[in-house]
Design a protein around this nucleic acid. Structure first.
Lengths: 201, 201
DNA sequence: GACGTTTTGTTCTCCCGTTCACAAACTCCT
DNA sequence: AGGAGTTTGTGAACGGGAGAACAAAACGTC
């Protein structure tokens, strides 16, 4: 988040900023921001603030986005399509090296300039490109078996869009994104707004 | 999450379950699950467990997914496309009533069975369908103005996929989803794995 | 009908993240 | 050069969520 805010500031031509400004554009408390940054080192100047470009580089280096991360996406449905085309990945140092789908009818299609390949090619692709991050955009029923296969192929980080809890061995990181849960949270608050206004009226 | 786990159990034909089982399939601690459920009421039976169907209904009622929530999606790029087609919304009680895009060339296209309409129609669509939830899938630069317009039209909950912090008045809820931040978190852990193994070797 | 077993609901404790508040450090102005 | 004004970095206080542990309640068995 800080990295994004800093990039945005740099694009606006800002060369230096205070913790207060940066915190505001990242949407957090300024004390929290300063404490977070202090874990990386002491990159600010008291009385002045932070140098945007310098701090940006330091954060990028720390979280590892200065290097290029090869990524494979499995499941080229609507979501997989969108992910393959998502420019945010490219600009943050992620390179989609392959799109895989179990559906034989899909292999050979071209999406976002990449050929969709057979799921069987997973192992060789991972080995050839030294891939350590995989994205699962398959239906829920397929997710666990895809994850197992990914782990066997040597992938150690998985971003899971399927609405399932994946079980993986220790040492493998999984992060789950569930788009409809976010909507459900909003709906819950909406419901509470309406019931509390009914009580008032 | 619990709702999804319960639905999954119900599909498997399970009629009753313990907090231990449900916690396992939701990926949380059983004590936490029981505490969470206790906020809703006392829907379990000691010595037996929870009735899957009954608990499912109670949770659905509490979080408001028993009713139908109309939703508008603004920005029909790759992501908007995927969201419009995403079946998970429909099955969780969300109904996409309109797709809007500022690009005049896009209006008239049909996506997921809905016509893409001009952004100018926002106010009338919101009023006619009693919409309170909006989804922003536009580029970052457009997001804030779309949000302002949504709020003015009467929308009180926004799901934001654009990589920007939105500022909205009190009483309006915003949730942000940033797909590449999740990947960055994975990349960070990957980097730490590799540096720590270098130290060992 | 009483007792042991199982499982929920709840209390207590611990721990971690967040925020406040202030000293240290730097700049600018006189 | 010195003091006033900023702004960082960090120690201390606060709050809340997560897990352990236990009492209460239901079921089954004899």
């Amino acid at each position: 988040m800080y990295l994004r805010a800093l990039t945005s500031l740099a694009d606006d031509g800002t060369t230096t900023c205070s913790s207060e400004e940066l915190a505001a554009s990242a949407g957090v408390n300024s004390a929290k921001l300063r404490k977070d940054l202090s874990y990386l080192g002491s990159y600010g100047t008291r009385g002045v603030g932070y140098d945007v470009e310098y701090l940006r580089y330091q954060i990028a280096r720390e979280i590892g986005v200065t290097q290029d991360w090869p990524v494979v996406i499995v499941g080229i449905g609507n979501l997989g399509h969108a992910l393959a085309n998502y420019s945010g990945f490219r600009s943050r140092g992620f390179r989609v090296v392959a799109l895989l789908d179990a559906d034989r009818d899909r292999t050979g299609e071209t999406v976002a300039g990449l050929d969709v390949r057979a799921f069987e090619d997973l192992e060789s692709i991972v080995a050839d490109n030294d891939v350590s991050i995989g994205v699962i955009a398959t239906p829920a029923v397929a997710a666990q078996s895809v994850a197992d296969r990914m782990v066997a192929a040597g992938i150690t980080s998985i971003l899971n869009f399927a609405p399932t809890v994946l079980s993986v061995p220790d040492g493998v990181d999984v992060r789950k994104v569930d788009l409809s849960i976010e909507l459900q949270i909003l709906a819950y608050h909406e419901q509470r707004k309406s019931v509390s206004s009914e009580v008032v009226s």
